[in-house]
């Protein structure tokens, strides 16, 4: 193990380490803690210049105010409307593309695979004008499904990379055995491979959920009104309206951060497996 386990060092060093970790954590999360504290700080504190001291009272009313005085509930609903179909769509498509690229040998296999990989890395801006135009022409501009459709297509690149590597690591004998038995290719996919892909599907789902929930660029390009904007774009426009009302901005920020944070805590193991692109096992 590297570095040397702390248990092998002197008791003083061990104590020091046990103190250093939480202290480092607090310093690391200082911006987050500050915002969390501000989100429950009464507006009167800010007016009196009490920005960093202990709040004079805990004002959960800030959250109530955000919900009643802004369309934030609608923004969050829109985020779910975009995110959930994207997760389902991208995972479904990539199960199939990943299967095709991992199991079959054909001449353009690697070419198709690397096209997905490369496409996943391109800057969004090179897609912006044509995608916006396409969405307009399809009559899907400023709708949740227009945005979701693009996300599904784009995320398929990353998901294919992940799924293909995952399936490639499965024992190929299973598929061979099924073929010898005369099982059709579709049934091999459905009954042999798909059940084994559950961990990969879980990992990708949490990861794509977070990516899409946190997307800001495409939300601003493809949606414009409060009825359709997801939370990231919504929060940005609220920030423009709430100038210097930091208690509201903070409460809104915490709300926007909550769903992915919960997702991460509930599905932590899967999440981390997904981030390493399946390469660092």
């Amino acid at each position: 193990m590297f570095p040397r386990p702390i248990q092998q060092t002197s008791p003083a060093a061990q104590t020091l380490y046990k103190v250093a970790v939480p202290v480092a954590l607090i310093l690391w999360l200082l911006p987050l803690l500050g915002v969390a504290l501000t989100s429950v700080r009464p507006a009167s504190d800010l007016a009196q210049g009490n920005y960093f001291g202990w709040p004079s009272s805990v004002a959960f009313s800030n959250y109530a105010e955000v919900f009643t005085k802004s369309p934030i509930a609608g923004y969050m609903l829109n985020s779910f409307k975009v995110t959930i179909p994207t997760v389902i769509g991208a995972v479904a498509l990539s199960c199939m593309t990943g299967f095709a690229l991992a199991v079959y040998r054909f001449r353009s296999n690697l070419l198709v695979f690397f096209m997905f990989v490369a496409g996943n890395f391109v800057p969004f801006q090179i897609l912006m004008v044509p995608v916006r135009d396409l969405t307009l022409n399809l009559g899907m501009y400023n709708t949740w499904y227009g945005l979701a459709l693009f996300h599904i297509a784009f995320q398929t690149g990353f998901c294919t990379l992940f799924m293909r590597n995952f399936i490639k690591a499965l024992p190929f004998e299973l598929i061979e055995a099924a073929r010898v038995e005369g099982v059709s290719e579709w049934r091999i996919f459905w009954f042999v491979v798909l059940p084994l892909m559950r961990p990969a599907i879980a990992a990708l789902s949490v990861l794509i959920f977070t990516f899409i929930w946190n997307d800001f660029f495409w939300a601003t390009v493809l949606t414009t009104s409060a009825e359709t904007q997801p939370i990231t774009a919504g929060l940005s426009s609220l920030n423009g309206q709430w100038i210097a009302q930091w208690h509201l901005v903070s409460a809104g920020s915490i709300l926007a951060a909550l769903p992915p944070v919960l997702m991460f805590f509930l599905m932590q193991r899967h999440f981390i497996a997904g981030l390493t692109l399946g390469a660092v096992k």
Partner: peptide
Amino acid sequence: KLAPWLFLAPGLLMFAVYVIGPIFES
């Protein structure tokens, strides 16, 4: 021979329309 292309078709189509095509269009 056909199965891989059938499995690829939906994903590849979406990716071509929304990612590969737009690069050249831009």
